[in-house]
């Protein structure tokens, strides 16, 4: 095992946005990006999470994947608030194209049009996609 360098991050607060674009099941992207969101909370950064494309299904109420042999990890999104991750955005166009509304989600989200989300993305220091 090689030696691990430590980079100085003391006192630096950056704007991180995690961009969720994939359906919750079918691939592992949704689950693993959620793991990285939770870990990032320990670093006291300015974190936001965006849901667009099929990613909006990640937080839809009523997941029941047990017949797929998978665990339902959607309750974990409700834990984000406990980690002070409260800026959750859903892209309006993606939501509407899938017949969803703001009340269909397991967490409280801000619904924003694509143009506004694009501005929010431009303001970030770091974008992590999955």
């Amino acid at each position: 095992m090689s030696e691990e360098p430590v980079f100085d991050t003391q006192g630096v607060v950056r704007k991180f946005m995690f961009v969720n674009r994939k359906a919750p099941y079918g691939t592992i992207y949704a689950l693993e990006i959620l793991e990285s969101v939770l870990i990032s909370a320990a670093f006291e950064q300015d974190i936001s999470v965006a849901f667009l494309d099929d990613g909006v299904f990640q937080i839809k109420k009523g997941h029941d994947p047990k017949d797929l042999g998978m665990k339902n990890f959607s309750p974990t999104y409700r834990a984000l608030g406990g980690y002070d991750i409260e800026k959750l955005y859903v892209e309006k166009e993606s939501m509407e194209a899938r017949g969803l509304g703001p009340d269909d989600f397991v967490v409280k989200v801000q619904v924003v049009p694509a143009a506004e989300l694009s501005k929010l993305m431009a303001e970030q220091d770091v974008l992590i996609t999955g």
């Binding site: 095992m1 090689s2 691990e4 980079f7 100085d8 991050t9 630096v12 950056r14 991180f16 992207y29 793991e35 990285s36 870990i39 990032s40 320990a42 670093f43 950064q45 220091d125 770091v126 974008l127 992590i128 996609t129």
Partner: peptide, 26 residues
């Protein structure tokens, strides 16, 4: 050789420390 296993915190750390973080993948 050259790789080591570590935690997800290393991703956040590099996001903070680097001038730019580039993501390659779908």
């Amino acid at each position: 050789e050259g790789f080591h296993i570590s935690g997800l915190g290393q991703l956040t750390e590099i996001g903070i420390a680097a001038d730019r973080l580039l993501v390659f993948g779908d």
